[in-house]
Each structure stands twice: as structure tokens, then as C-alpha cells.
């Protein structure tokens, strides 16, 4: 599904040019469950931003189902993020003024769904993540685990091809971490492709494939046949 060739991203830090991503080549198949690990500054977040279409590479190619995403303009990238990608962030990034249901509706609004269908789909997604009774709550009225589940429901709203999660359990306690990881595994079993950036071993162990980064390069790419 994803072909990344010689992907390079360089940042200007004062006088110095730092290669956050230094010629990364990688391919991801549909249905994979991947953990991207490495110390901070190793380039894993940059990879995530590039895969998610939030940024463009300075060099290299990014093919998504054969389409060259690195050549997209801003509007095409926006549509790509809307239709193909679901994001989960460490800090959830829910809009505090909106209810859980409205937060889940957000990607569908930008996708141009009619209101009634949108609402039905959002309710369905919240049910999927086990939040049937919390649809009218605002983020501040919910626990961290619940908020992250709303965020996952939002990421699933437009049936993305790829779910990108950046430290999704970084702000959660052990118990809720387990719940969220179980949810991810369930979604993966249903065919969703998952890429999770993490530095927690526990999270990485759940993945079938672990890609380790250091200084903008892949240092190891190992698979386990069965999830732990």
C-alpha cells in the first residue's frame, strides 16, 4: 500500500542543517500493525508527519496506492488526510467546545457528508469504541482514556486506509493503556493498517513489526509473526 523511497527531510536549525529524515526507504502493506520506535529526535515523528500528509519531503518519493503524495498541493494533501488517514495524538486534540459526537463528526464535515448520515456514522463509531453513553459529553467531562477513545472514533470516521498514532498512550495510566491497546488490536484484526509511534516497549510489543530509528535512519526492522 505504501512505498517510501529515499525519503529526506532537512530542517534549518540556526546555521546548522539537520536531516530529520535521511534517505528512508520503507514499504508498508495493508493490514500491518507497525510500531515505530527510537529516541526523541530520531526522526520517527517526522516520518509520521510525512506519512500523514501534514508535511512534504525535501527529497524522495512517497507512493500511496501508487499515487505520488509528495507532489500533492495543499488542497490535495488536505483531501488525502481527510479520506486516507486517521490521526491519534498523545494529547488527544479534541476541540473542547464540542461534544464527543461533534468531535467525531469533524472529519466528515470537511468530507462533505450530509448532517443526518454524519451524525449516524459518528454515533456508530462512538459505539465501536465503547462510548455509547458519553456522546453528549464534552472532553473536559471525560477521563483521558475516554478522550483518547473519542479521538480514535474521530480517526475512524472517514474509514481511513491508515491510522497514524503518535504516542497514543503517553498520557494514559497502565490500565487505560491496556484498554486502548486492546482496541487498536481489535481494529487491526478488522483489517485497519496501524502505524504507532512510541517509546514504550509495552506498546511496541503489541505490534507485529517494529521499526527502530536513530539519527533519521532506520537501524532495525524486525517482525514477529504473532503479536505478544
Amino acid at each position: 500500500m505504501i512505498e517510501v523511497r529515499n525519503l529526506t527531510k532537512v530542517y534549518q536549525m540556526g546555521d546548522e542543517r539537520v536531516a530529520a529524515l535521511d534517505g528512508v526507504t520503507l514499504s508498508i502493506a495493508r493490514g500491518e500493525h507497525i510500531a515505530v520506535i527510537g529516541p526523541s529526535g530520531s526522526g520517527k515523528s517526522t516520518l509520521m508527519n510525512l506519512l500523514g500528509g501534514l508535511d512534504r519531503p525535501d527529497d524522495g518519493a512517497y507512493l500511496f496506492d501508487g499515487e505520488d503524495v509528495s507532489g500533492f498541493d495543499d488542497d490535495e494533501l488536505a483531501q488525502f488526510r481527510n479520506q486516507r488517514i486517521g490521526f491519534c495524538f498523545q494529547s488527544f486534540q479534541l476541540l473542547p467546545r464540542l461534544t464527543a459526537l461533534q468531535n467525531v463528526e469533524l472529519p466528515m464535515i470537511y468530507g462533505g457528508w450530509p448532517p443526518a448520515q454524519r451524525r449516524a456514522r459518528a454515533a456508530e463509531m462512538l459505539e465501536r469504541v465503547g462510548l455509547t453513553t458519553r456522546m453528549g459529553h464534552r472532553p473536559t467531562q471525560m477521563s483521558g482514556g475516554q478522550q483518547q477513545r473519542v479521538a480514535i472514533a474521530r480517526a475512524l470516521a472517514n474509514s481511513p486506509d491508515l491510522l497514524l498514532a503518535d504516542e497514543p498512550t503517553g498520557a494514559l495510566d497502565t490500565h487505560t493503556t491496556q484498554e486502548v491497546l486492546a482496541l487498536f488490536e481489535e481494529l487491526n484484526r478488522d483489517g485497519l493498517t496501524l502505524v504507532i509511534v512510541t517509546h514504550e516497549n509495552e506498546v511496541a510489543e503489541h505490534a507485529q513489526r517494529r521499526i527502530a530509528f536513530r539519527d533519521g535512519k532506520i537501524v532495525s526492522d524486525e517482525r514477529t509473526l504473532a503479536p505478544a
Binding site: G52, L54, D74, D75, A78, Q79, R81, N82, Q83, F87, Q93, L95, L106, P107, Y110, G111, R154, N158
Partner: peptide, 16 residues
């Protein structure tokens, strides 16, 4: 700013 970033991440175009 964060709201704007999130909206863009879930598919808002700059014109939106």
C-alpha cells in the same frame, strides 16, 4: 492555533 492545526489534520483545506 491548536484547533486550527487539528482541523487541518482531519482534512480542513486552508480555504476552509
Amino acid at each position: 492555533t491548536r484547533e486550527i492545526g487539528l482541523r487541518m489534520a482531519v482534512g480542513a483545506r486552508r480555504s476552509d
